[in-house]
Structure formats: C-alpha cells, structure tokens
Simulated assay, not measured.
Amino acid sequence: MMNFPKNEGYFFPAEWHKHRATWLSWPHKEASWPGKLSSIYQPYCQFIKAISAGEMVCINILNEKLKQEAVYHLTEAGVNLQQIVFYDHPTDDAWCRDHGPAFLINPSSNIPKVIIDWGYNAWGNKYPPYALDDNIPTLVGKALNQPVFYPNIIMEGGSVDFNGAGSVLTTTSCLLNPNRNPHLKQHQIEAHLYNYYGVEQVLWLGDGIVGDDTDGHIDDITRFINETTVVTVIEENKNDENYAPLLDNLNLLKEMRLLNGKQLDIIELPMPAAVVHEGQRLPASYANFYISNAAVVVPTYRDKNDQKALDILTDCFPSRKVIGIDSTDIIWGLGSWHCLSQQEPEI
C-alpha cells in the first residue's frame, strides 16, 4: 500500500482547531488589483493586526525592498511586529489559501505535522506566471523542516472546507472542471481527497457565485462552523443571477447526511448587494471569513446586510470575537480574507 498521509494517521484539522500561525503571501501584483494595489494595504494590515493578536503571522515575501514596505505598512497599522515572521519565499501573487501549504497533523506521531504540496495552476492557467506560487509549500516545508507529500494533481485550498471529523465540502464546478485535472474522474479525485487530506466523506455542491474566477470555490458559498453545522449564503432577490445556484446548493445541503447519518444543521447567511467595479461583478460574499485564534474576520462591503451577517456569525462563534473589515477594495482582486490566508495548526 502506498504511503499516503491518511495511512499514517494524518488529517487536515478544521479551521477552528487552535493555530500555531497563519501564513500569508504579501500582495505585490498590480495586475491583481489594477489601479487599487496601494489602497489594499490598509485593510490588509487591519486583517493582520486582528489575527496576530492570537497567533504568529508568517509572511512569504518577494524581496527585501517589499519587506521594508511591508514593515512600514504594518507599523502604520499598529501591528505588533514581534508576532510577524518574514520568509524569503518569492511569490507571483497573494492568494495563499490556494498556493500555500496544506498542514496535516497526527498528534500521536513522532512527526506530528506534515505538509501537502498540491499542484497549482492559477485556477486553470488563467493568470500566468504561477511557478513561484506553486513552489511555496515546498519552501515552507524546508523552512520548518517538515516532510512534504506530493499528490501530483491540481488542488486549491479555497475549493475545500473541513469539519475536522472526516467530512469535506467542495463543488463539482471547481474540482471537476477540465482546466484542473482533465485526466481524472470524480471517484479518482475523491480518492486523492481521502488519501491526502485524511477524510472519509466528500460532500459535493454545485456552482459557485457569479464573478468567482476560481470556477466556484466553496469558501465563497458554504463553510463548516463546527462538526455538524454549516453556514451557507443565500440570495433573496429572485432576479439576481446568484439566486438559482445558491438555492440549488441549499437544497443539496438539506439532502446531505454526515458520516453518522445525521443531517447537517444549516444556518443561512445573506449576500451583499452586487458589488460592481469597472463593469465587472465581483465575488463579494460574507462566507469568505477567516477563523483565527483571536477572532473571526469577516469581509464587509459597505452594504446594508453587513451588520446582519456579522450578527449571524457572532452567534455562530460565541467564544471568538467577530470582526468585520471593509473588503470593498480587496474584493477587486476577486478574493477576500479566507482566500488570502492559510492556517498552520498547533499540535
């Protein structure tokens, strides 16, 4: 039998599992935020300030010049630099959820933490170059002296969401897209999820939201908040193009059963009104929150539903502070706080 992480007792813990650190890749690509790159650093540093209150923040940085700029922005935001560690890991872009290391743990092993280095092709070769990003998990493995596994298929962290108890949520629109792994059928992709993430069950939703250039990442639509409960975004306006796909996903969630045969507990989150910039609808969603040790950081959009979403998520996370940070400029890059971050669990 091949030496898969699952066979060695490793699994990908839920995001609410205590973190040792959060990994980020410092933004520098003008083409990702055309005309807005300079405006994202203030909210980005607010995000770092919120999470660094409860854990280390490890930042992949392109070069020394960018590191000096980063220190300036972080200092301006009042971030405690004692909580920040820079790594000389050059990147093409900032989306660390998708190109960063996937950390698996087995607390009873003498090597309790390992890294999965999935292949990365910038969401179906949409935004070359991406070779630097594709190399990040291996560089992190070397920096931390942790073993690295190579599944040799394309997989992005934003396309999967875990309950830490054997179940993973994903979408057919992303994982079965021919621009990722055209040589693999659904059951073969499921086998990779079982073997390399240490899960027992794959729960499939359908399409993502309009404007999502990732072909439907789960972290924009449906998220586990505990082992048995998900929050899922719904669109109340029947004339909105998100109405039908989100309703379809809600109905699929109602039909799902967990490993113990129980139904999911489902909490509905609203969607903000369409966020449009230069004629392009952006993938604005409250589901793209990030669960850190100190806080749950939620993207907001200067929208009437911002407070409603924050109130719902505050009820979902009674032991954590829920913080809304304006994502109106960040979302021009077609992602928000969850897309930008990757957690490293504590053992």
Rank of each mutant, 00 (worst) to 15 (best):
P43R: 00
D92L: 01
H217I: 09
P107M: 07
T138K: 14
E227D: 14
P270Y: 05
I136V: 13
A77S: 13
P43G: 08
D326R: 05
S109N: 14
L269N: 03
K113M: 13
A244L: 15
E200L: 09
N181R: 04
Q42E: 12
F317N: 08
R97M: 04
L169C: 06
G54V: 05
Y41E: 05
A14I: 05
V57H: 09
I221E: 08
L253D: 02
L66E: 15
F149M: 10
F47L: 10
L247A: 04
T91E: 00
A131L: 06
N179G: 10
V114F: 08
T229S: 10
H19P: 01
V202Q: 08
L74S: 06
P151C: 11
V296F: 07
E156S: 12
P34I: 02
H28T: 03
G261P: 11
I154H: 05
I323P: 01
A131T: 03
H187A: 11
E156H: 08
N106Q: 12
C96G: 02
M2Q: 15
N181V: 03
V298L: 09
L62T: 00
D93P: 08
V160G: 08
L74T: 07
W123R: 05
E8Q: 14
Y301L: 14
N63P: 01
G208A: 05
Q188L: 02
W26M: 00
A53C: 12
H187P: 00
V276R: 05
I266Y: 06
M271P: 02
N63Q: 05
R20V: 03
I331F: 09
T228I: 14
K304S: 13
Y72G: 09
F162R: 12
M271S: 11
L246Y: 04
A274Q: 13
L259Y: 02
D134I: 01
I330R: 06
T232W: 01
V148Q: 07
L184K: 11
V148K: 08
I51D: 01
P27A: 01
N63K: 00
I225Q: 01
D219G: 07
D215N: 14
S108A: 13
D303R: 04
S52Q: 10
C45H: 03
R223T: 04
W337Y: 12
G335P: 00
D215I: 03
I209Q: 00
W16E: 03
S167K: 02
L81W: 13
K65N: 12
A295D: 06
M56I: 09
V276I: 15
S319L: 12
L334D: 02
T214V: 06
K238P: 09
S39T: 10
L205R: 02
D212C: 04
L74E: 01
A70D: 03
K262M: 13
E190F: 02
N251R: 13
L169W: 05
T91Q: 01
A122L: 05
P107K: 07
T300C: 00
M155D: 08
S292P: 07
L24Q: 00
Q146G: 04
S173Q: 11
P101T: 13
V148T: 07
N125Y: 11
D215H: 14
L282G: 02
P151S: 15
A14R: 11
